[in-house]
Amino acid sequence: MLKDLLVVAAATFALLGHAQAQTMKTVKVGTTNLSSDIGLFLAEKRGYFRDEGLKVELVPFDAGAKMVAPLGAGDLDAGAGAASAGLYNAVNRGLKLKMVADKGTNISGYSYKALMVRKDLIESGAFKSLADLKGKKVAIIANGAADESVINQALKKAGLKDDDIEKVFLPFPQHLTAFANKAIDASISAEPGVTAMIRNNAAVRFVGIDDFYPVQQTAMLLINGKFADDRKTVTAFLKAYLRGVRDYVATLKDGKIAGPGAETMIRDIAEMTGIRDTTLLHQMVPVFIDPDGQINRASVETDLAYLKSRGLVANDISAEGVVDMSFVEELKPVLGSFKASN
Rank of each mutant, 00 (worst) to 15 (best):
G225R: 10
K226H: 13
K226C: 09
F227E: 00
A228Q: 05
D229E: 15
D229Y: 00
D229Q: 15
D229L: 10
D230H: 11
D230R: 12
K232N: 14
T233E: 09
V234I: 08
T235M: 11
T235I: 13
A236Y: 00
F237Y: 12
L238N: 11
L238G: 06
Y241M: 13
L242K: 11
L242S: 10
L242Y: 09
R243C: 01
R246I: 13
D247S: 10
D247W: 01
L252V: 10
K253D: 10
D254V: 05
K256Q: 11
K256T: 09
A258P: 02
G259K: 05
G259E: 00
G261K: 07
G261L: 02
A262Q: 08
A262V: 01
E263Y: 06
D268Y: 08
D268Q: 14
D268F: 03
A270V: 11
E271T: 14
T273I: 04
T273Q: 08
G274Q: 07
R276F: 03
D277Q: 10
L281I: 15
L281V: 12
L281C: 13
L281R: 12
H282E: 15
H282L: 11
M284L: 14
V285W: 01
P286L: 07
V287R: 10
F288G: 01
F288Y: 15
I289D: 00
I289Y: 01
G293L: 12
Q294T: 09
Q294K: 15
I295T: 04
I295N: 03
N296I: 04
S299K: 05
S299V: 09
S299Y: 08
E301V: 14
E301N: 14
E301K: 13
T302R: 14
T302M: 10
D303P: 02
D303F: 05
D303K: 09
L304E: 02
A305T: 12
